[in-house]
């Protein structure tokens, strides 16, 4: 049990912090809609997620007071994100890589076979000139 704290430590943030954060969120919403009309190819999703991540950070840091609270809560929040990333990335190791072995698995065998065939042909060439083998 923690030491007794006679007074509450909760203090209200100034109003301008909340209004400023809300304003920034609105501006970022407009920006994210605007950039979605620009074609960055594959980078559109990256830009959209970066902006969303920035907005989410604002909400978490100011509205949810993570910036001012016990840093343990920040740790909990970030570990949720981290384990979500593990879930997605490790599944993607599978889903975007399937069937790769099929492309390469017969390659070394073919190479070996070619060398073997070549050796065989060469030796046949020496023994029976003009005979090109099978």
């Amino acid at each position: 049990m923690v030491e007794l704290v006679p007074e509450h430590k909760h203090h209200a943030l100034p109003l301008r912090v909340y209004l400023g954060v809300a304003g920034a969120l609105m501006v970022l919403t407009v920006i994210t809609v605007a950039v979605s009309y620009v074609d960055f190819g594959g980078w559109n999703v990256v830009v959209a997620l970066l902006i969303a991540g920035f907005k989410a950070s604002l909400v978490a840091l100011y509205f949810m007071h993570l910036l001012y609270d016990n840093k343990l809560y920040m740790f909990i929040f970030l570990s949720a994100v981290a384990f979500l990333v593990i879930l997605i990335v490790f599944t993607m190791f599978d889903t975007v890589q399937r069937g790769r072995l099929d492309e390469i698995k017969d390659k070394p065998i073919k190479q070996q076979a070619e060398i073997y065939e070549k050796l065989k042909t060469d030796s046949l060439d020496v023994e029976h000139e003009g005979d090109s083998g099978h």
């Binding site: 490790f90 190791f93 599978d94 975007v96 890589q97 072995l101």
Partner: peptide, 11 residues
Amino acid sequence: SGQSEIAAMIF
């Protein structure tokens, strides 16, 4: 199960 070989090696 048919998951990718790379995933299988990592796991």
